[in-house]
Amino acid sequence: MFQLSPAGIDFVKTELNRYETKRSAILPCLYKVQEENGGWVSPEAVNHLADVMDIPAAHINEVLYFYTMYNKKPVGRLHVQVCATISCAMNGARELAKHICDKYQVKEGEISDDGMVTVTKVECLGSCGTAPMMQIGNAYYENLTKESAIEVIEDLKKKSTNQ
């Protein structure tokens, strides 16, 4: 059963008082839940959050399913998001995404066998002048080549397994 950590509960309490209405706290609190639930928001986590926030789970689900940054199913420890919109597409983004998928033997949106990597193509991330680019976690990696992208991922994989 998912439960927010004490710090997570404190976060929710603060957010509930931060805006003009409680409901505005849903978006920030869903980020917190996702962070503490290993990168995705499960149905149990929604129910738990609804209890803590004391608002209807339906309001939370409405938000959860509308926005793409909340993962509705589990993802690998490294969620590699490659922008495939127009300026990136013109600079080899789709070939890059395919290269990363082939390298880690995953289909788009699935998790590699070692649980490490999920690759998804996403829409414009506002980094079009430094295309092609990818986002992993919170960080942007720009002006990529096939080689430099793999280097970044390998590096993060090492850091993540050493933790």
């Binding site: 869903l30 409405e62 926005y67 793409t68």
Partner: peptide, 24 residues
């Protein structure tokens, strides 16, 4: 206030819905 991945929240009334904690 942080959005959560939806182009339509750039449209001003979509943004307002989103800030109110609803779908954008």
């Amino acid at each position: 206030y942080c959005g959560a991945g939806a182009y339509i929240c750039g449209e001003e009334t979509g943004m307002i819905s989103s800030l109110e904690g609803k779908k954008g």
